[in-house]
Amino acid sequence: MSHTQHDASPIYGYLAEFDDKDALFACAQAARARGFTEIEAYTPTPLHGLPEILGYKNYVPHLVFLGGVAGVLTGFGLCYWVSVLEYPLNIGGKPFNSWQAFVVPTFETMILFASLTAVFGMIILNGLPQPYHPVFNVEKFARCSDDRFFFVVLSRDPKFDAHDTRRFLADQKALSVDEVPH
């Protein structure tokens, strides 16, 4: 991994504090323009458009689609296996492989698999449960669930530089810039 040398860094990164979402947006945009890639933002409420600026890629929809496809195959496969292979019954003289009757269970398993994939995919991709995170080491971060917006540049970012990055964040109208220990 190319990050190995940065992982050896004594700190996790720098934490900038804002009291206004527009300042956070501006900071995130400036950081992206500067070429930072390992950046994070923490906000009291979801902000539309912020994940896109941070370059965050959401893979949950793709997983949900695959979950849905798996549900279709499972549901139809189950119906087919029971009705055609394992225990064929003559119901009203209809063919054993009566796909019309299989559609409803197939649809329901599709929904079931897709929604379970959505819930667990979201939890796993979010890295949850996560009892410890380095940003908790900064005391004022507690206000993130109240009225403060935070922005972090990670030390493993290839463009990270202890002096310049701190200066850069201070220039972004941040209320404060703190070192985040591991």
Binding site: G92, K94, Q100, A101, V103, V104
Partner: peptide, 12 residues
Amino acid sequence: SFSQYLIIWSGN
């Protein structure tokens, strides 16, 4: 559309 078909197909 499918419900109408399924019901009529089932009733036969």
